[in-house]
């Protein structure tokens, strides 16, 4: 879209991830009980980056997996059927762990609600935290993030697109008008 405006570039994104990593390690008071679960597609790459960054700081391999929430969505019947994304829970599971859910954009909160339901069927974590690269507001459920890369005030008619090298050839967060 022509009117897309870059609100975070790759340096901003690296900084944001670094900050999230430090906050995670700080609030968890260490890394041994952490499990990172990224919500596909881009949340999964962010979780991987966060895990790698923790390894860079601590030298510790934090268990990192993916959690597809498609089967738990509340809007399945509003759209054409969606293909499932991979779910891979680290071999030691999530029981008694501090699970950090990682997603790219926090908006209505419905994805996170679905993710909490999904977690409930998989095990019983000691705590669940939420890390997002961008919080664009407009929550429809009582959900708030624990770690935010960037608070980005938006209008409902705007679209926030997170691009990551792993799939998009560059790192950027872009804001555009819907239908522009």
């Amino acid at each position: 879209m022509d009117s897309a405006r870059t609100v975070l570039d790759d340096a901003d994104i690296s900084r944001a991830i670094r900050r999230i990593v430090h906050e995670i390690v700080e609030t968890a008071k260490g890394t041994e009980s952490l499990v990172l679960l990224g919500i596909p597609t881009r949340g999964a790459y962010l979780a991987r980056r966060i895990a790698d960054a923790i390894t860079g700081i601590d030298g510790v391999e934090v268990p990192c997996g993916t959690l597809d929430i498609t089967l738990y969505r509340d809007d399945l019947r509003l759209r054409a059927v969606r293909p499932l994304e991979p779910t891979s829970i680290p071999p030691d599971g999530i029981d008694g762990r501090i699970v950090v859910l990682v997603d790219d954009v926090l908006y209505s909160g419905r994805t996170v609600r679905a993710a909490l339901d999904a977690l409930n069927d998989i095990g019983r974590p000691a705590a669940v935290r939420l890390a997002v690269l961008v919080d664009r507001g407009h929550r429809e459920l009582p959900i708030r993030p624990d770690y935010v890369g960037k608070n980005l005030p938006t209008a409902v008619k705007e679209n926030v697109a997170v691009k990551l090298r792993e799939v998009d050839d560059l790192d950027a967060v872009e804001l555009s008008e819907v239908g522009a």
Binding site: L71, Y72, L84, P86, T87, D121, I122
Partner: peptide, 23 residues
């Protein structure tokens, strides 16, 4: 292939203790 891939993802559910999905 989509059906087989979907079946593979859903198969993972069969291995957990709670085998039910709300879908």
């Amino acid at each position: 292939v989509l059906i087989l891939d979907t079946a593979a993802e859903l198969g993972a559910v069969t291995d957990r203790s709670i085998k039910k999905l709300p879908t």
